[in-house]
């Protein structure tokens, strides 16, 4: 274990200047001058202190190794150990050390998934009308085009929300557990957030109509990326649709202040 520590460290400072570097010396932030005259490390201590330090060394070493082993098992594929002790690994790693490095792996995403929404509006006189499908992902794409530093709000919010939804629902749109329910609410709220800002949803008098929305329906449209020109592969690029159920919009789904936007815009 000690050898591990040293080896790892040696890789970092593997050049001559490092061998002479005296990080503590005069430049360590919390070293006062007299530290330079006394020695450092375990050799500079008397036996009782050495024992304390040795215990600390053992604890730190074991802790670092256990932590790395847990993280390793967390990112490794399901295996004999994780099948037997998966709960212990999860308990250690979640929530703060959760990680996923399957970046574009095993295969990169090969389709564009967009989210479309249509809304059912109830006018103040009670008349119902349904909007056409509005492509929310197109707004993101538009914002990302020629943007050297896209915001997470454009690049991750909706993209990851629909991913979250699809992973927490069965094929017949039944939510799985707390996360399933949360993801539905999340999708609804994103939809309402976007609709609220949409110029399309304004009445002839310029009044924002998002406040009139009674129900929304979302659908995920999957468009496979066509195979490269140089490849002989044939890809069916026809879009496929997954219709989510109609959801009633509650007050909790509306962005803060949406309910009064009607009166505000009317001014």
């Amino acid at each position: 274990m000690d050898a591990d520590v040293e080896k790892g460290a040696a890789d970092v400072s593997d050049d001559r200047p490092a061998a002479q570097a005296d990080p503590l010396g005069a430049i360590a932030p919390d070293a006062s001058p007299d530290a330079q005259d006394s020695g450092t490390g375990i050799m500079a201590l008397s036996l009782p202190y050495q024992v304390v330090l040795a215990v600390a060394l053992a604890v730190a070493g074991v802790f670092a190794c256990v932590h790395l082993a847990m993280v390793f098992l967390h990112v490794a594929p399901s295996n004999t150990l994780t099948k037997r002790h998966g709960q212990a690994v999860d308990d250690w790693v979640y929530p703060e050390f959760e990680q996923n490095w399957k970046l574009f792996a095993p295969n990169p995403l090969q389709q564009n998934i967009s989210v479309e929404v249509r809304a059912e509006l109830a006018a103040p006189d009670g008349a119902l009308r349904t909007t056409g499908w509005i492509d929310l992902t197109a707004q993101d794409t538009e914002a990302i085009r020629h943007n050297p530093m896209p915001s997470h709000a454009q690049q991750n919010e909706l993209r990851r929300a629909v991913d979250f939804y699809l992973h927490s629902h069965s094929d017949d749109e039944r939510p799985e557990g707390l996360r399933g329910h949360l993801s539905e609410e999340y999708m609804r709220r994103i939809a309402m957030h976007r609709l609220d800002a949409l110029p399309v949803l304004r009445g002839p008098d310029g009044r924002a109509l998002a406040g009139d929305v009674r129900r929304v329906q979302l659908r995920a449209v999957t468009r496979p990326v066509a195979a490269p020109r140089w490849s002989s592969e044939e890809t069916d690029t026809a879009p496929s649709y997954r219709d989510l159920p109609w959801w009633r919009v509650t007050e909790a789904d509306r962005p803060a202040g949406a309910h009064r936007s009607g009166t505000e815009a009317a001014r």
Binding site: A3, V5, A9, S13, A18, T40, G41, I42, A54
Partner: peptide
């Protein structure tokens, strides 16, 4: 090795 890891902050 013990002296190294207890005597200096490496890197």
């Amino acid at each position: 090795a013990v002296q190294t890891v207890t005597g200096r902050s490496l890197g």
